[in-house]
Design a protein around this nucleic acid. Structure first.
Lengths: 189, 189
DNA sequence: GTCATTTCTTTACATATGTAAATGCTCAAC
DNA sequence: GTTGAGCATTTACATATGTAAAGAAATGAC
């Protein structure tokens, strides 16, 4: 397991007291399989770091269809990031696919650190930039690769995950139906 | 036309001297129709604010197919953002679709302002967050809407643009062929 | 205006994917 | 083991989209 501390230090250097001030805001929580960590329609106030377990973020259309957007497992920050930033109502749901252990903090309390700890603001900028880069990668993939190629990429980027979750979750992530994913899998052999 | 100054002030408050220090880094440039402002394979060093004109950013597959990613016109910041952030080689091309007037600065010089002007770092964080939110919007649209719906959204979000650029650029942005866009347009009437 | 070039639309056919329903598989509860 | 529920696969058919080629329309050069 990658610790929260070392995860954060990947992004940028932070002085020990600033890092400690940040880490002190986080409290351990657990979340059971099937529970929603974030719910569409609410305004997000908190975010968490995943220590163990697996979650998925998904959009739900007005007709009730679900579209998986991303999976989270250690090490990852989980939260309705767009809602935290914009303070608007959240559009995504985040569900635990297994029991999860996380550490959680109030986002506003993190913002309150900025004045005294500019390095924390820098860290957050770096994380925002990293999120942007990740999202761009996925955007490129959605546009340039067909479903079969996206499936191959998924396997590369999430080794082992395929065997932990339902096929229909993967299909949803790839933007296709389970039927089509089944056909793609059949063709590969 | 929206001035660079007022564009920036939409994101966050900035003191006059910090803002001026930032604006002083920017120099007017022009870019002719057809020229590339950023080229795949290079490492980006500069970014610009679009005052007049129209640009497109696109990916190019190894087979030479192009995929439009976004269009830029006043007010917008244009640059190979991911490459600037990661300092890795740029994956996108940015082409002027018309003659353009922009103001341009060296990205490193902006970073150098951070120590003396923390508000500039805050501004950049806010912009990074905004870019993330925009990208998420497009991701949602790519996954949840079919091509016909994405076309309707495009018309809403880029009023008038449809008549300024070639249909095949729009098709590429929507992720479909000109043939299919033509069919969608035909069906609408 | 005429011509050439580019762009847009249309057509015919091929492929990818969706929908719905049937079938088969897995695993856990009993 | 038996059973049932949930999941995965398969099948048949419908739709969306792609490809290639032809024709129509728009644009710019002269």
């Amino acid at each position: 397991m990658v610790s929260f501390r070392s995860y954060l230090l990947q992004f940028t250097k932070v002085s020990e007291d600033s890092l400690q001030a940040l880490l002190d805001l986080f409290r351990p929580i657990t979340c059971k399989k099937g529970e929603l960590y974030a719910r569409s329609g609410q305004t997000a106030k908190k975010l968490a770091f995943v220590e163990t377990g697996l979650l998925r973020a998904y959009y739900q259309s007005p007709e009730g269809e679900q579209f998986n957007k991303i999976f989270f497992s250690n090490p990852a920050i989980v939260g309705a990031y767009t809602s935290l930033i914009t303070k608007e109502k959240n559009q995504i749901n985040i569900e635990c696919l297994t029991d999860c252990e996380m550490v959680e903090a109030d986002f506003q309390k993190i913002l309150d650190l900025y004045e005294e700890h500019p390095m924390i603001e820098r860290l957050n900028r770096t994380i925002a930039e990293d999120f942007f880069v990740q999202k761009e990668k996925r955007e490129i993939s959605l546009v340039m690769n067909d479903a079969s190629e996206r499936y191959a990429l998924f396997q590369l980027e999430h080794p082992g995950l395929e065997n932990q979750i339902a096929q229909y979750h993967i299909a949803s992530y790839l933007g296709i139906t389970p039927t089509q994913l089944s056909r793609i899998r059949a063709k590969k052999e």
